[in-house]
Amino acid sequence: MSIVKEFKEFAVKGNVVDLAVGVIIGAAFGKIVTSLVTDVIMPPIGLLLGGLDFKDLKIHLKPAVGKTPEVSINYGMFINTAIDFLIIAFVIFLVIKGINAMKRKEEAAPGAPPEPTKEEILLTEIRDLLAKKA
């Protein structure tokens, strides 16, 4: 199968649209979680730790000199980002767990029996013909 044909099938099936919607919603969700962590979760934690602002936590390697900015390791921002990641990962885990549970229910639900394959139909016809001859 050529790459062009495969791409057409991929694009026509709607996977591209689904992917685009997922990326847009994921970006928006990421912003919400970042705001949740930065504006809601971290201030009370900082208050419990004596008025500490995690954004200000850093290790100064070189102070600012003139127009040259300081060089520092901003581990407080890293902590915020790590908490963002953990929240997003947990929510995605819950969504996937819910989807898998719904799939299991669909598979377990009794439905119409599967249609026989061509081989099964042919074997049934042969059996019936043999039964008529006997």
Rank of each mutant, 00 (worst) to 15 (best):
K5W: 11
K5Q: 12
F7I: 12
K8R: 13
K8I: 15
V16I: 10
A20R: 07
V21W: 08
G22K: 01
G22L: 01
V23F: 10
I24A: 12
I25W: 06
I25E: 04
A27I: 11
F29L: 08
K31Y: 14
V33I: 05
T34E: 14
T34Q: 13
V37C: 03
T38A: 15
M42F: 04
P43G: 00
P44A: 06
G46I: 06
L47D: 14
L49V: 08
G50S: 04
G50R: 04
G51Q: 01
G51D: 01
L52D: 03
L52W: 05
L52Q: 11
D53N: 15
D53P: 11
F54M: 04
F54W: 06
K55F: 12
L57P: 03
K58P: 02
I59V: 06
I59C: 09
K62G: 10
K62I: 14
K62S: 10
A64P: 02
V65N: 04
K67Q: 15
K67V: 14
K67W: 13
T68N: 07
S72G: 04
G76H: 03
M77K: 15
M77Q: 15
T81C: 12
I83C: 00
D84W: 01
I87E: 02
I87W: 00
I87C: 00
I88L: 05
A89I: 07
F90Q: 04
F90H: 08
V91T: 07
V91A: 03
I92P: 07
F93Y: 09
I96R: 10
K97G: 05
G98I: 09
N100H: 12
R104L: 10
K105G: 02
K105R: 13
